Simulated assay, not measured.
Amino acid sequence: MNLYAVGKTLVKTALHPLYRFEVLGTEHFPKEGGVLLCSNHINALDPPVVGMTAPRTVHFMAKEELFKLPVLGPILPKVNAFPVKRGMSDREALRTALKVLKSGEVVGLFPEGTRSTDGILKKGLSGAGFFALRGNADVVPCAIIGPYKMFRKVRVVYGKPILMDPYRERRASAEEVTEVIMSSIQEILDEYSKNK
């Protein structure tokens, strides 16, 4: 068993007694090929929660400061996380993400770049659109619907893939594609927040 699988089991063991997770839409997740998984970001628990609920192994892009922490830092690379400087302008991170996507694996990121303190979806960074266009992968939007309160429901919803070929064919900009991704996340939030 690899460390990612061990970590996934540990996260489930730690979090399931505290929150009532409802996971929807995993049937939309492509079973193979490169996938850019884009989620809103409302809590520090979001990365392990997405990693725990996604049906495939996720390589997370995480802010570089986390890799400098004494305990967490050495563990992150072993669970497939890789560092990025804030703003997603880090060339090494760009190369790593594209390599993972082109090898047919899943890259997970939070396009807002930071947590939303009020739960309202913020404007996405254009890096998300860049990866979507250049990574030979389709995009799976994800919405985490909280708030994280003890023994309350936390809903994780995976939407239908956004096919990137039409945007690549007409040479859409990274900014436009990022807006499409964020709109898809917002649609999921609007639909599933009502009936929580």
Score class of each variant (00 low, 15 high):
Ser183Met: 14
Asp46Lys: 01
Val79Lys: 02
Asp165Tyr: 05
Val177Cys: 03
Val50Phe: 02
Gly146Lys: 07
Ala143Thr: 09
Gln186Asp: 08
Asp190Glu: 09
Ile120Phe: 14
Lys102Asn: 15
Lys153Tyr: 02
Ala174His: 09
Ile144Asn: 14
Pro48Tyr: 05
Val156Gln: 04
Leu109Trp: 14
Val180Pro: 01
Leu15Arg: 14
Asn43Lys: 07
Met182Asp: 05
Ile162Met: 11
Leu125Ile: 13
His28Thr: 04
Ile181Ala: 03
Cys142Pro: 10
Ser173Ala: 04
Glu27Ser: 11
Ala54Trp: 02
Lys99Val: 00
Gln186Cys: 04
Ala132Arg: 06
Gly146Asp: 07
Lys196Gln: 11
Pro141Cys: 00
Thr96Pro: 03
Gly146Ala: 11
Val79Gly: 08
Pro141Arg: 12
Ala14Gly: 09
Leu36Ser: 11
Leu37Gln: 15
Asp190Thr: 13
Leu98Val: 04
Gly124Phe: 03
Thr57Lys: 15
Leu121Ser: 13
Pro47Trp: 00
Val107Ile: 02
Met88Ala: 13
Leu101Met: 08
Glu191Trp: 08
Val79Gln: 02
Leu37Phe: 01
Glu169Asn: 13
Leu10Gly: 08
Ala93Gln: 10
Gly113Glu: 09
Glu27Pro: 01
Asp90Tyr: 01
Arg170Phe: 05
Leu69Glu: 15
Glu105Val: 01
Pro55Lys: 08
Arg56His: 02
Glu32Pro: 04
Phe21Tyr: 15
Ser173Asn: 03
Lys8Cys: 03
Pro47Asp: 05
His28Arg: 05
Phe82Val: 00
Leu69Ile: 11
Ile144Met: 07
Leu3Lys: 01
Met61Asp: 01
Met1Arg: 10
Pro83Phe: 05
Ile185Trp: 09
Gly73Glu: 12
Phe130Asp: 01
Asn2Lys: 03
Met52Val: 02
Phe131Asp: 11
Ile145Ala: 12
Arg170Gly: 02
Val157Trp: 08
Glu176Phe: 14
Thr13Trp: 12
Ala14Val: 15
Asn80Pro: 05
Ala5Gln: 13
His59Ser: 10
Lys160Cys: 04
Ser184Tyr: 06
Val79Tyr: 06
Lys85Gly: 12
Lys31Phe: 00
Gly113Tyr: 11
Ser89Val: 06
Val11Glu: 10
Lys122Met: 15
Pro17Leu: 08
Val107Gln: 14
Lys194Ala: 15
Pro83Tyr: 07
Pro83Asn: 11
Arg56Pro: 00
Phe67Ile: 03
Gly127Trp: 06
Phe67Gly: 11
Lys8Ser: 04
Asn2Ile: 04
Tyr148Ser: 06
Gln186Phe: 01
Ala132Gln: 09
Arg91Trp: 05
Gly119Tyr: 10
Gly25Cys: 06
Ala132Lys: 04
